[in-house]
Amino acid sequence: MKFRARVEVQLRPGIADPEGATIERALPALGFDGVAHVRAGRSFSFEVDAPDESAARTRAAELADRLLANPVIEQSTLELEVL
């Protein structure tokens, strides 16, 4: 079976996010009031061939943890859809 995985990587809560903070500081000047707690991140998508959903999830999660995110400062979330 083929699955499409979407991985979102963000800094862990508590780790300073200078990129998010800079974006947040720019918002009032653009007229966006009432927006807070901006966090920057990255998203990745890829296809996985696996016998079933659970196997695809395991492989994609391992890939996310070993390469896409640096677990020292980042965390990832994973979504799968069947293709």
Partner: peptide, 11 residues
């Protein structure tokens, strides 16, 4: 080595 090197404060 432990830890990580993040983007500089104030970018």
């Amino acid at each position: 080595l432990p830890g990580a090197l993040q983007k500089n404060g104030r970018l």
